[in-house]
């Protein structure tokens, strides 16, 4: 009977955490947004979560594009189909790797930092202190971070894909000698704006919402001790990554699977 009770307890705890998380999301995003007053705060947070993630995104995108070109070339060249290298690199980046890898890197780079920052604000009573100043921390602290994440991540994913395609060009065309004309033209013939690029952006926006939401909630809900914050930070990365990979399957099935 003990395990049953534990199952019940953990179910109840998960449900109540989900409830609190929804409360945070609604309190921060939906209840009375103040776009004009909060715009500078969003810009500042975009610097923290967006600009400061740029380097890792560009470097990772470049290398992933280069590796894919190398791997793809060795396979395609056996069939004399190295002309298809362009669409292969572009489609995998736009549909999958761009949104997913960006989200995973974002969770590790910016998400964990958000959790730690908000958790520390809670531990040092800054959130309490805002409350006592009659300022809602959900709107002042959480909302700008949430918006900045939601705006920044699709942008990062676009940059990631673009850089990856250039990286593929670097290896495929400049090094392995695939014809530059066919790299671009076959890519153009295959890739569609709505089907491939926009769907990738939509995916990325969904990931952005989920990852940023998990990050700010974990910080806001953290036990305000050093142990609690370190646990919350770890959970942010783990939960975000799992959520991204799981959602990726669902979204892919919805977007590309049913034909």
């Amino acid at each position: 009977m003990d395990w049953l009770a534990r199952l019940g307890a953990s179910t109840l705890e998960s449900l109540s955490a989900l409830g609190r998380a929804t409360q945070v999301l609604f309190g921060a995003v939906i209840a009375k947004p103040q776009p004009v007053k909060h715009f500078p705060l969003v810009v500042k947070q975009m610097y923290v979560v967006g600009v400061q993630s740029l380097l890792i995104i560009i470097v990772s995108g470049l290398f992933i594009g280069m590796v894919m070109a190398l791997q793809g070339y060795t396979i395609l060249v056996d069939y004399g189909a190295e002309g298809s290298l362009g669409p292969m690199v572009a489609l995998s980046l736009l549909r999958e790797l761009g949104p997913v890898v960006t989200a995973l890197l974002f969770a590790g780079r910016a998400g964990s930092a958000l959790t730690a920052e908000i958790g520390l604000m809670k531990a040092t009573e800054q959130l309490s202190s805002l409350e006592m100043m009659a300022i809602d921390p959900l709107r002042r602290i959480i909302a700008p971070r949430l918006w900045a994440g939601i705006i920044s991540m699709p942008m990062l994913a676009l940059i990631f894909s673009a850089v990856g395609i250039l990286g593929g060009h670097l290896v495929g065309v400049d090094w392995l000698g695939v014809d530059a004309g066919s790299y671009w033209s076959i890519m153009q013939a295959t890739v569609e704006w709505n089907e491939d690029v926009l769907n990738g952006v939509i995916k990325s926006a969904v990931f952005a919402l989920v990852v940023t939401w998990i990050s700010v909630f974990k910080g806001y809900d953290a036990v305000p001790t050093s142990e609690g914050i370190s646990k919350a930070t770890t959970e942010t990365v783990v939960y975000s990554s799992l959520a991204v990979l799981g959602l990726d399957f669902v979204l892919t099935a919805l977007m590309f699977g049913i034909n």
């Binding site: 572009a90 736009l94 676009l158 894909s161 673009a162 395609i165 671009w184 890519m187 153009q188 013939a189 295959t190 890739v191 569609e192 704006w193 709505n194 089907e195 491939d196 690029v197």
Partner: peptide, 10 residues
């Protein structure tokens, strides 16, 4: 870049 060089056709 994605619109012009990569997905021109669409």
């Amino acid at each position: 870049m994605l619109a012009i060089h990569v997905a021109n056709q669409g």
